[in-house]
């Protein structure tokens, strides 16, 4: 099969490998994403490693309750990502690396995300005007 050629160019690609629930890497990425999208730019996140687990459908929209305040729902990271994908449809995309997903048994992602093989990483980078690589996996 011929290699896929990206037809569209994106302003920013963030490759996120640092695991969630460890540092504020995801928080910083979401904040930067918000700022870039507010400037009418386009941005994709390539989610690697344990970030592939954030968009599983099984996690739902709300986290398990804060027992000190169970009436206040807290959104899951997946819900936050879905909210961005909905609000900035066409300008924001969240790509889940299928190799990392398979390694971690992260299946059944929310339909708004795209699944891509790591064999397409180079093409995805080539389709971006600038790439930020966040290590720490």
């Amino acid at each position: 099969m011929a290699a896929t050629v990206e037809r569209r160019s994106w302003d920013v690609l963030i490759v996120l490998t640092a695991p969630p629930h460890t540092t504020d890497a995801l928080t910083t990425v979401l904040r930067l994403t918000q700022a870039v999208l507010e400037r009418e730019q386009t941005l994709r996140v390539w989610a690697c490693g344990y970030n592939t687990m954030l968009t599983q459908s099984s996690l739902g929209e709300t986290k398990p309750a804060d027992l000190r305040d169970p009436a206040t729902p807290a959104p899951t990271a997946g819900a936050l990502i879905r909210g961005l994908l909905t609000a900035y449809k066409g300008r924001f995309s969240w790509i889940v690396c299928t190799a990392c997903s398979a390694e971690r048994g992260a299946h059944d992602h929310i339909p708004e995300v795209r699944l891509r093989s790591d064999a397409r990483l180079a093409a995805t980078i080539a389709a971006a005007r600038r790439t930020l690589y966040i290590g720490g996996a």
């Binding site: 460890t22 540092t23 504020d24 995801l26 928080t27 305040d69 899951t76 936050l80």
Partner: peptide, 11 residues
């Protein structure tokens, strides 16, 4: 501290 503010939140 600060091990995932957006994903861990109150936890």
């Amino acid at each position: 501290g600060y091990r995932g503010s957006a994903e861990a939140q109150f936890f």
